[in-house]
């Protein structure tokens, strides 16, 4: 049933794609038939699989570190007002640097490495998580905190048993948003001289005017994004099962 719910929209989209191209006689320059795009992926399966894995790895690395840094920063900001007053404006300012400019700097720092792409994915990920985790911590009922304190709970206990679980719904909202951002970050990172990855493929197809290869790269990117999003949603369903019932 869940599988059907997942597959059905995809099939519908595929049918719409094929149908529109055939019926409206769309020039393949604008939108090639889906089967041609899938054929291109099939023909170079290992290459697309490798690109998928490489970009997934970069995005996930940045995403995981970004998520952790976000939660840790939010924890620090929640407990230390002065730290928040001092650092939060810097966090905000950091986000005003266009990602392309940031990418250029990161490539100068880290060269053509996984770290460079992960750094950009991280850059786009940590901020939404920080903001949402902080909002989650702040929204905790102070009476809950008082109750735990009356039990003699340490700060650490309160964080693990109350603050973190309470903030999880908001953290996951940010993580779902960040899944797409991390992918975008990894792809942008690959636009600065990477040899492999979905972004590198996208760029090569773009500049060689290979429309089919471009759509194949786009589909692969969507698969990477879908994979990250799917895992986040699965973990969320397991950890925040109680959310809908609030």
């Amino acid at each position: 049933m869940a599988l059907l719910r997942l597959v059905l929209p995809l099939l519908l989209l595929a049918a719409l794609w094929e149908g529109a191209v055939a019926l409206l006689q769309i020039s393949p320059f604008y939108l090639p038939p889906l089967r041609q795009v899938l054929g291109a992926i099939w023909a170079l399966g290992p290459a697309y699989a490798q690109a998928f894995m490489v970009t997934l790895g970069e995005a996930v690395a940045g995403f995981v570190v970004g998520g952790l840094v976000g939660v840790v920063s939010a924890t620090a900001f929640h407990h230390q007002r002065w730290l928040r007053d001092m650092l939060f404006p810097l966090f905000v300012a950091s986000q005003t640097v266009p990602v392309i400019a940031f990418g250029a700097i990161v490539v100068l720092w880290f060269g053509n490495t996984l770290l460079a792409k992960a750094a950009i994915a991280f850059y786009l990920t940590f901020f939404p998580v920080t903001v949402n985790a902080l909002a989650g911590f702040e929204a905790v009922d102070p009476r809950q905190v008082a109750l735990l304190r009356s039990f003699g709970a340490s700060r650490r206990d309160i964080w693990w048993k109350l603050l973190l679980p309470s903030a999880l719904p908001r953290i996951f909202t940010a993580l779902r948003l960040s899944a797409g951002l991390a992918l975008a970050g990894a792809i942008v990172g690959e636009w600065f001289g990477a040899s492999i990855g979905v972004g590198a493929m996208l760029l090569a197809a773009l500049f060689n005017e290979q429309v089919v290869a471009m759509w194949a790269a786009i589909l692969t990117a969507a698969a990477v994004g879908g994979a990250i999003f799917g895992v986040v949603a699965l973990v969320e369903a397991r950890l925040v099962f109680w959310r809908d019932e609030l």
Partner: peptide, 16 residues
């Protein structure tokens, strides 16, 4: 702190 069993007005149960 930690020596008295305290029960506030609201049940304050944790939904998870």
């Amino acid at each position: 702190l930690g020596k008295v069993a305290f029960m506030p007005q609201r049940d304050l149960l944790l939904p998870w």
